[in-house]
Write a protein that binds this DNA or RNA. Structure first.
Lengths: 200, 200
DNA sequence: GTCTATAGTTTGATAGAC
DNA sequence: GTCTATCAAACTATAGAC
């Protein structure tokens, strides 16, 4: 079968248009702040008028939701792509570093993914599921290395890494005061799990 | 000398008025969200019109700044009041618990104190100094117990505790999924410092 | 699907009388 | 120091023509 049906072409065009809107929204959020996002400004970047956005999204929150889903999808693909070292301790270090760098690279993205900064916004179940699955898959991959973590242990790990991220953003944005502590924190955690020491 | 000078009376009245405004602002923030705070609503609670607030604060951000300072001042006094156990590990547990409970009791307060949720708002140097001094004093008190922490170690501790707090708020508000992990997290940290085990 | 037009609010902040 | 009046701007969302 060559080519596509007419209806799938239409779907593609719709998706492309939605994608352009979400891209523009990220642009605005990065320049003006996540909460300062306005439909007029987003529309202007896309090259249309504000009301036209309603042909693609039911509300402003629906745009936030698409941004949320996209951000976690991006992280999911990024983290699927990294090659984990066989040694559990080194693997944990890389996982932590990947997440830390991803979160400290982009404040509005971090706020949307990991904090509840936008008044009244909660991700839809479908979007939240992407976030859950991203972490589940990382957890499954470390399990393949023989590192089986309980749910509590995963929660402790995410709290530790996201704590460093938040302190970095809140108290030393652009610096490295908590960045420098990441490996040490992971080692503390690995010691807690009684993971064997490894040659660096 | 009995009584006060006229000028100190005036100062007191001004402070009382400012205090009423800040109280009203907290009330609104708790009901509507920190970012949803409006001058009209604050003024209404105080029983005046919005423009009257400008006799006491130069801008909306100035009110946020006063709230920030007050929140950290409250925590400073609370933490000054707790009696630390002599045993370092138990002391750390209590410090962590005090901060965790304070932060999870009030989301807008936590957002203002520990995150950067309000677009464009940064605490003034004077207000930020209160936050720094609150943590410094806690650090000094644990030092009196023989627990001398480096700056990095303090940073790691704050990241760990605030990480649990943020995960609790973002992913299980009202629940105890990360609350339950607090003591375990502190023990992990204490182990990392090679603090001796103690009888519970 | 995009447009114009606009409803219907709400906002922070200022001017100037009292 | 508080008020009224108001500015100037911004916002989300809808209606209806094309």
């Amino acid at each position: 079968m060559i080519g596509k049906t007419t209806s799938s072409w239409i779907t593609d065009r719709r998706q492309a248009a939605s994608h352009k809107i979400v891209d523009a929204a990220w642009q605005v959020a990065r320049e003006q702040g996540l909460a300062a996002l306005t439909l007029r400004e987003v529309a202007a970047r896309v090259g249309v008028r504000a009301p036209s956005l309603y042909s693609h999204f039911d509300s402003k929150h629906a745009i936030y939701d698409a941004m949320y889903a996209e951000a976690w999808q991006t992280f999911l693909e990024l983290s699927d792509g990294i090659v984990l070292p066989a040694a559990p301790r080194a693997a944990l270090r890389l996982v932590a570093r990947t997440f830390f760098d991803f979160a400290t690279a982009d404040l509005p993205r971090h706020q949307l993914m990991n904090l509840r900064t936008v008044p009244g916004f909660t991700p839809s179940p479908e979007s939240y599921a992407i976030a859950v699955s991203a972490l589940d898959r990382l957890s499954a991959r470390t399990a393949d290395l023989g590192l089986r973590l309980t749910a509590d242990e995963v929660d402790l790990f995410t709290a530790l890494v996201s704590g460093l991220i938040n302190q970095q953003w809140a108290n030393d944005p652009g610096g490295d005061r908590w960045d420098r502590l990441l490996d040490r924190a992971v080692d503390m955690y690995a010691d807690h799990l009684n993971l064997p020491e490894e040659e660096q």
